[in-house]
């Protein structure tokens, strides 16, 4: 049979031929990541932004600030039908989107990751950072992609200086972004600091029972997936879709995950 046809109609069998040789159809080994490409400050109008590419997957992330009472980070992830035909059905996309938004909001707001005190600007008013992530092209591994882009954008973000407002009836009580060289600033311009970087690693389970690192969309559709999120030797697990040996699979994946997070740290330091 033609290779293209086999790939489309029987991806499991197609993959089995490759996995027997310890390779994947795109030429990677089982435990090899796609090359990551990070660009900081991709948008001029946002407080901070980043665009990240992982093979053919790419996302764009921007941070927008609003003044409210309780300082926090709010993440919203968007997977529009534009990025993949998988999300043509809105229902399916919504499940994935709300999972990612909720999980990333939780992870980034942890006290060991982010200190909300740095958002305080004047009195009890503080910044609420809305992190918007839009997937431009989806080829698997949304969790890693979105979390890495969010971290990069937050590290890139700079909070502007604020002065007391001069326009409108409640001018004295409102705050406005300070013009350049303003003197009576109530809140200084400053960069955001993350206390630690939570680093994600994702695996997918292939039909033969092997786990592959950094799966593409086809590999994700073949079976279970595990996303781990590391922070200082501890981790969270998001494992869905079954088939893992209860006691052993984490032990088997852990060393690979460690080397993979080391590589991700290098990505941020460049």
């Amino acid at each position: 049979m033609d290779a293209d046809l086999l790939q489309r109609f029987n991806p499991e069998d197609f993959y089995r031929h490759f996995l027997a040789d310890g390779l994947r159809p795109d030429g990677r080994g089982l435990r090899q990541q796609r090359s990551a490409e990070l660009q900081r400050h991709a948008l001029g109008s946002a407080l901070g932004s980043a665009s990240l590419r992982l093979g053919r997957s790419s996302v764009l992330c921007g941070v927008r600030g609003e003044l409210e009472e309780l300082g926090r980070i709010e993440v919203s992830v968007e997977l529009p039908p534009l990025c993949s035909a998988l999300f043509r059905e809105k229902h399916r996309a919504l499940g994935q989107m709300s999972f990612l938004s909720k999980t990333l909001t939780e992870v980034l707001n942890l006290p060991s990751v982010f200190d909300p005190k740095q958002l305080l600007c004047h009195g009890d008013v503080s910044w609420v950072l809305h992190v918007h992530i839009v997937c431009l092209n989806y080829d698997g591994n949304a969790f890693d992609l979105c979390l890495l882009a969010a971290i990069a954008a937050l590290e890139d973000a700079e909070l502007p200086a604020l002065v007391k407002g001069t326009l409108g009836p409640e001018a004295g009580e409102r705050l406005a972004i300070a013009p350049a060289n303003a003197e009576d600033v109530v809140s200084e311009a400053r960069r955001l600091v993350l206390l630690a970087r939570p680093l994600p690693v994702t695996f997918a389970r292939m039909p033969g029972g092997q786990w592959v690192l950094d799966p593409c969309a086809v590999e994700e559709s073949l079976g279970a997936s595990v996303s781990l999120c590391f922070l200082e030797g501890r981790w969270l697990v998001f494992h869905q879709g079954g088939g893992a040996d209860a006691n052993r699979f984490l032990e088997e994946l852990m060393p690979v995950a460690r080397t993979s997070t080391e590589k991700l740290t290098k990505l941020f330091e460049n």
Binding site: L110, F230, R234, L236, A244, L250
Partner: peptide, 26 residues
């Protein structure tokens, strides 16, 4: 957690909140 008892396989495992270490996971 969801466990397939007869094969001793994890079917799903979703966590939220604080990060945990290896001993707690086990």
């Amino acid at each position: 957690l969801s466990v397939d008892g007869s094969r001793n396989q994890l079917v799903s495992n979703v966590s939220s909140g604080a990060f945990l270490d290896a001993a707690t996971w086990a």
